[in-house]
């Protein structure tokens, strides 16, 4: 497959003695939306978190295999995890703005990268908020606390916060699962816009959502990658029985 951004090869992941990912092989294309679906506990979120090494934070996790981004193995000894995470941004299931102002939330990333010039910061923040399609809603209250925003706005703010670091890949862990339908559709629109510039990997419970926004879909089941194909094929003509069962709602 051409234009692949992320390669995963023979990936195994254990939580202590429990296997959570079993021999995953996956190539994620650049500037496309790739959806990871499957019943809860199937390992899709775990897999997503291996892509920016978020699982490093959990002590009992052991990882074998290779994941490479742009040809560089991110589990190599010499990898700088901090910079890796600047390149691979992440949006979480529950919106998690800092208890700071809207401006400071978005400026957080640039600031830790050493940008302190006020004008430059303002420019970055404005652009990020515009790209996250929330600028119009917050431009008049940049100094208000981010915690005063609605759930959907908070989630878009978190996306803006991620964009402000200027990543290449954005990982989204069920970003709309806690939101109402209107906010969800706004987020979905945003994702479709964002894929022009970013490679997006999204975990979702919602199959319609995967069908609507993704180009590729991977179906996980009990730690294994069952099927991976173009979204169209997965939803219209799945190869495996398990995939079909899941998509048609027979389980999960």
């Amino acid at each position: 497959m051409k234009n692949s951004k992320i390669f995963t090869e023979n990936l195994y992941l254990h939580y202590g003695s429990k296997m959570a990912l079993n021999n995953i092989n996956l190539a994620i294309p650049e500037k496309k939306v790739t959806a990871l679906i499957g019943p809860s506990g199937c390992g899709k979120s775990t897999y997503l978190r291996t892509l920016n090494r978020m699982n490093d934070l959990i002590d009992s996790v052991k990882i074998e295999g290779n994941i490479s981004i742009d040809g560089i193995n991110i589990y190599d000894k010499n990898i700088d995890v901090v910079n890796l995470r600047k390149k691979v941004g992440m949006v979480f299931q529950k919106s998690n703005p800092f208890a700071k102002s809207i401006f400071e939330n978005v400026a957080y990333g640039p600031r830790i990268n050493g940008i302190s010039d006020k004008n430059q910061l303002t420019e970055i923040v404005e652009k990020a908020l515009q790209n996250a399609a929330i600028w119009d809603e917050v431009k008049d209250r940049m100094n208000d606390s981010a915690l005063g925003l609605s759930g959907g706005q908070q989630q878009r703010l978190c996306i803006a916060r991620t964009l402000a670091v200027n990543p290449e890949i954005i990982l989204m862990d069920e970003p709309a699962s806690a939101l109402d339908p209107i906010s969800t559709s706004k987020i979905e629109e945003l994702i479709v816009q964002l894929k022009e510039n970013y490679t997006i990997v999204i975990v979702t419970h919602n199959m319609q959502q995967a069908a609507r926004i993704s180009d590729m879909t991977a179906f996980f089941y009990i730690g294994e990658l069952i099927e991976y194909d173009k979204t169209k094929n997965i939803f219209t003509n799945p190869e495996k029985k398990q995939t079909e069962d899941y998509i048609t709602g027979r389980f999960g």
């Binding site: 995470r85 998690n96 990333g109 916060r161 991620t162």
Partner: peptide, 8 residues
Amino acid sequence: EASLALGA
């Protein structure tokens, strides 16, 4: 996690 994911 949010902070770390932003590269802090």
